[in-house]
Design a protein around this nucleic acid. Structure first.
Lengths: 212, 212
DNA sequence: CCAAACATACCGACTGAACGGTATGGTCTC
DNA sequence: GAGACCATACCGTTCAGTCGGTATGTTTGG
């Protein structure tokens, strides 16, 4: 319960708890359906504290998206899919890793910024851009491996590393939509399997499911 | 402006206008951010009329999703992608058709039920299921062509026609999310190009972009 | 080293507008 | 004249946001 100091103004306890509550509640109910009061109660703070840390609900949305970008960047940076020596193996390991973390409750694995941006893309450019930065920034972390894989396998075609990286994110976002619509997370697994198969085919690499 | 009759109770003018307003407004702002008053004003009806036709806002959401399923079913049934004799060509023509209708404003081409289900999947099972029926019902219309293509080309693998049909919908939904996040509809085109390439590769069919 | 001056963090009652929904009564059609 | 259709006034609740206040840290002047 350390109080924030002038040198560490971002470390306010209430601010962090509000951001954590926003992450969980917005993933479950969406941005608009999440009220400031609800957030305050979940975080165990008062409304005065909320508006001390955030100018408005929209400012909280932007901060939540930025924090999401930070935490996911750290999470994926430490994930084991970077270990293989071969860049293509790293790309495939990324897809496998994304599939492996789709488990448990939908709120636990779905994407905060993908959920938010669908709601606010027209009404709040600030939140929309923060969500876009998170999604496209994450996509960009895949580019180097895809690029290296293209070079090492001599693969070219009517597509780019950046474009394929973005496509992986589209498949993942779409997989979440289908999982929610069908209330069944194996629908998401299915699309990630197709994504893996696509990448293997792009790189002329057996997918282990050829007819015997 | 024919008034509805007892024999034709679904044809009420106000009801139809409310459903049209719901389609447009929810696609732009989302379900929760769309108020009943706003809908009434957009449809040019009063609140009494709204609650005469719909028991609740949730009931309107369900009706809007069902109507979306009906209108999209009719729209795609009449689309030209069914014309080719070869089933694989029909599947590819479907993807090309989906790409071609992604133009203009995001609200004009994005998916009502995909937007809604992200928001309400946890809070309203009724709307969620209606959205699911729309998405998976549409996916099912692709199964026969995919199945026929698999048979005619002798393609097998660790996937099914139904699964690939669902995956196409995941890619399309994800493409909408990225288009909204980047405020750029060409991001959606890009993912549909990858989907087309995937299908061609699955069926051992040149994608016209081999190195020369 | 102390204390005044200031900055930051937090509290909770309050506000006016907007929310979903209701009650009631009128009008038009069969 | 029965019932479908629509209008309007209204209800209780919840919404985002405000504001005066307190408590506790940090800075600074002597």
């Amino acid at each position: 319960m350390t109080r924030p100091t002038k040198r560490n103004p971002e470390r306010g306890d209430a601010r962090t708890r509000l951001l954590d509550a926003a992450r969980d509640t917005i993933r479950r109910s969406g941005y608009t359906a999440t009220s400031v009061d609800e957030l305050c109660e979940a975080a165990g703070v008062t409304k005065g504290s909320f508006f001390h840390h955030f100018r408005s609900k929209e400012a909280l949305g932007v901060a939540a998206a930025r924090r999401w970008a930070e935490t996911t960047t750290a999470f994926f940076a430490e994930a084991p899919y970077h270990l293989p020596d071969d860049p293509l193996e790293r790309v495939l390991a990324y897809v496998a890793f994304r599939k492996s973390i789709i488990a448990g409750d939908i709120e636990a694995f779905s994407c905060l910024v993908g959920t938010m941006v669908q709601e606010v893309h027209a009404s709040s450019p600030a939140i929309r851009d923060a969500c876009g930065d998170s999604i496209f920034g994450h996509a960009a972390t895949l580019e180097a491996d895809i690029e290296a894989a293209m070079r090492s396998r001599g693969v070219t075609g009517g597509w780019t590393a950046a474009g394929l990286a973005r496509h992986t994110q589209a498949v993942i976002q779409g997989a979440f939509v289908l999982a929610k619509a069908g209330n069944d997370l194996t629908l998401a697994h299915e699309s990630l399997d197709h994504l893996e198969r696509y990448i293997r085919l792009l790189f002329n690499c057996s997918d282990g499911s050829e007819p015997t």
